[in-house]
Simulated scan of single mutants.
Amino acid sequence: MNDRERQRLLDATRRQSGTIGERIPETVTVEGEELPLREFVFECKRLEGVPESERERIEETKRRLQRERLSRKQRIADGDITREEGEALVDEIRGLDRAINALEGLDEPDYGEQLRRKKIRDAEKLLSLIAQRPE
């Protein structure tokens, strides 16, 4: 792989839009251990908020995923791989990025749910006002 191809692959790992449409990998090998990544992320997303009992496990998993991401990016930078291997690493990095983003977003409010609840409250207020109106 030449320097231009290597730089193109490294640039692809930096693009934020690269994770759009990417799926979280079913499993990923992190530091020699196979992690059921998709199951873990969906399990965490089902939680109502992040309980303290799970917070450290989630943070540790994020750190491990970030180290694995850097390791794969370094393999591209070192250049001792083929273009095809580099493309595969970029895809893996994007999947890791998608998982990291999902885990980082766990503490953020669900704006869609908040909007739905607000619409329901507004509709209930409107119905209450209509019911109070003299005929």
Rank of each mutant, 00 (worst) to 15 (best):
R67E: 13
I24T: 04
E60K: 09
R72E: 12
R15T: 13
L70N: 13
Q132E: 14
P36H: 01
E43S: 11
R116K: 14
R67P: 05
I76V: 04
F42T: 05
Q74V: 07
E54S: 13
D3R: 11
E31S: 10
T61Q: 07
I120Q: 13
A99K: 02
E108F: 07
K45L: 10
R63M: 14
V41D: 02
G95D: 08
L35M: 11
E5P: 00
D80K: 09
K62A: 06
K118W: 13
L103W: 04
G79P: 00
L70C: 09
S17E: 12
E124V: 09
L47I: 13
Q114R: 15
K125I: 12
E85K: 10
L10V: 02
E87F: 00
D122Y: 11
A123G: 04
L127C: 09
I76K: 01
I58C: 12
K119E: 15
D97L: 02
Q7C: 05
A88W: 09
I93N: 04
E85C: 07
I130Q: 08
Q66H: 12
A12L: 04
P51I: 10
E59H: 11
L47T: 15
Q114I: 15
A131H: 10
E87M: 00
I120V: 14
V90S: 05
V90C: 05
L35V: 14
E92F: 10
D107Y: 06
E22K: 11
S53A: 14
R117F: 09
K118Y: 13
R55Q: 15
E54T: 07
E87Q: 00
F40L: 10
D78C: 01
E104K: 08
G105D: 08
N2W: 02
D78G: 05
I130A: 08
R72G: 06
R117D: 14
F40V: 08
G49R: 15
R4S: 09
E33Q: 09
L129W: 10
R6S: 02
E43R: 12
L89H: 09
R8T: 04
R46G: 09
E26M: 01
V28M: 10
L9E: 00
R67F: 13
A131S: 11
L96K: 06
R133W: 08
I76F: 03
L115W: 13
T27R: 07
R15Q: 14
E33L: 04
V50H: 08
S128V: 02
R8S: 03
R8D: 03
E39I: 03
E52S: 11
K119D: 15
R72Q: 12
E48N: 15
K73P: 00
E26I: 02
I81A: 04
K119T: 14
R83K: 05
Q114F: 14
S71I: 10
E108N: 05
G79R: 00
E135V: 07
R121V: 13
I24W: 01
E39K: 06
